[in-house]
Design a protein around this nucleic acid. Structure first.
Lengths: 216, 216
DNA sequence: TTAATTTGTTAGAACAGTCTAACTTTTTAA
DNA sequence: TTAAAAAGTTAGACTGTTCTAACAAATTAA
């Protein structure tokens, strides 16, 4: 078993390696708010536990074992976030810090019940995929309205936010889940988008709103 | 702020002092599964933090500050247990270990939402009172199965003990919180009781067990 | 290509929390 | 009332996690 601290290192290494594949000591130190020697000594420990492969002056890389552990932590974090938003109705901006603590709870049952209650969700409230209990990630990335190609038509599949004010806003714009929309134009300046709706009406959404709407 | 370890010491001191008022180093060491010198050095620390009053060879006693902290931890533990049972529908015998972890989560919002969702409960699933957010405890008499009048039917509201072996025992007998039971007979000789259960089965409990079950 | 900068390392200290071994004080019982 | 047992303490060590100071390697820019 890993300590809480080790889990945080593993999670951060995974997150940073998503972009680059390899992680630098300095990056990790910055992310975790510790100094480089702390990272250095932790890498020695994690290497001896075979969760990272690490040689002096070479980058840090998770082993297969390490990746598995990272995915398990990420699963717990994302399930917790979704649970806090959907079941406990907390604001999506306030759940991160709580999920950061809940992710370290050691109890298979706790998480399997969350999973059940949320009906085995594939994505967290931010649209990030939730690994399943075997560490498998549903890789088909979700597309948000803010990244849809101009001219294409898509169906609104979900919104990444359940807040009443947000849903009210969409309602006021005349948008519903299941509606087909065509992306007429995206403003390069502020990322706002103009949609053609089935109702023939044109709808303007800010980037902030568009990026929280998932389409298929 | 207290560390997780400090919180566990404070909680245990409170629990042990409920009976006697004063706690011995050896008691506490046993309860926390550590050796006496560990308790000794922790007492020095907690004394310097003014959460216990402690002088060599004298007993350990929580200060007002310490009591307040203990009640806050106990509140979090009991809210968590009730939440796990009522909202997450976990078995009452499996929630203790999870609550033991959740009680250390640092987030007012998390607990105030639990409290709201549970409609500001006064007792946890074991019938223990839940301190309110100011540390006030609602004391109110409860009836145990061992004092229920013969022939009456009641609903199992709570059990007064957290031990897994006890909860397992009840489970094995087929008893759950919320079950209706009718008291068929109480043996004057040993105080054991025979219950008629909703499942039509008759269940025999010893006095020792019956007095730890609260009914409504 | 050398010098400056960035990045990474080692050595050594500190703190939290634990332990064992040895000792002291208090309590209990012969 | 004194000897044995129980309870409590101190000293010193160890692990996990962090730090600062000093040095070494790699990268970047002059």
């Amino acid at each position: 078993m890993d300590s809480l601290t080790e889990e945080n290192y593993i999670k951060s290494i995974y997150a940073l390696s998503q972009a680059t594949g390899e992680v630098f000591v300095s990056e990790l130190a910055k992310k975790l708010n510790v100094k480089q020697p702390s990272v250095n000594s932790m890498m020695k420990r994690l290497a001896s536990k075979k969760v990272v492969s690490y040689a002096p002056y070479k980058g840090i890389r998770l082993t297969e074992k390490g990746k598995k552990e990272a995915l398990s932590i990420i699963r717990r974090h994302r399930l917790a976030e979704l649970f806090l938003v959907k079941v406990m109705e907390l604001g999506w901006e306030e759940v991160h810090d709580i999920a950061e603590q809940l992710e370290h709870v050691d109890s298979k049952r706790f998480y399997s019940r969350m999973d059940e209650m949320l009906n085995f969700p594939k994505f967290d409230p931010h649209g990030e995929p939730i690994p399943d209990s075997n560490g498998k990630i549903h890789t088909q990335k979700r597309t948000s309205l803010s990244e849809l190609v101009e001219g294409l038509t898509a169906i609104i599949a979900a919104v990444g936010e359940d807040e009443k004010s947000f849903l009210d806003h969409l309602n006021a714009k005349g948008l519903q889940i299941g509606d087909a929309v065509t992306l007429k134009k995206r403003e390069p300046f502020d990322g706002s988008v103009t949609l053609q709706h089935k109702s023939k009406k044109e709808i303007l959404l800010t980037h902030q709103v568009a990026e929280r709407i998932w389409v298929e």
